[in-house]
Amino acid sequence: MSRFLGSSITKKITMALLGLFLILFLPVHLGINFLLLKSDPEPFNKAAHFMATFWLIKGFEVLLLASFLLHIFYGIFLQIQNWLARGKQYKITNYSQTSFFSKFMIWTGLIIFIFLIIHFMNFYFIKIGWVQGDPENFYGVAHQLFKIPAYIILYIFSFLILGFHLAHAFWSAFQTLGWNTTVLSLVFKGLGTLFAILIPLGFTIIPLVIFFTK
């Protein structure tokens, strides 16, 4: 059993499953964020309140946080092993045809991680009382933040980076799960590219609309 749990393939499969779970959460989050575009703060705050109090979602939240932490832990762990596996570096780095964004997963991942910390300070930490603010009016908090140009730039940059992470991650997860045949591979690559464009685009439109219209 330890041979199974400690195996590199088990670690990758765990990462892939956790990653897919995180991927599933993104459209849900985006859907709620679109409520920020309404001039009435009620629907968004209600949704946020529901997310914060409904027991099922609360369980889900713990799961989500754990997924993030484990995904990040394994990501860093595997990356360090990968660096060590080369030993002496080549003088001329390989430029083989590859899945381009796969080379930067650790860096795009770490940038997402930094963004998440900022994001948590803005919302989650208010909720649990670590940071001052009104947990019943996240609509207001978001609208305030989206009036700060520097914050919008950081926000858009982070989602661009998330797009880069997803551009490889989506397809890669299915390959890791062994679901790839020649045909399926093309399907997942296509869907992955679409997902990596649409999700960040959706997230970045919201602050721009708020900044320029409200």
Partner: peptide
């Protein structure tokens, strides 16, 4: 090292072995 599904192996293999072999390996493994 661990596989990142980067695909440099497939691009450079002189016998053009496909990445689908890694997918099958993972399936067989679990």
């Amino acid at each position: 090292g661990n596989c990142s599904n980067t695909g440099a192996c497939e691009a450079e293999c002189p016998k053009e072995i496909k990445l689908t072999n890694i997918a099958r390996l993972n399936r067989e493994f679990y």
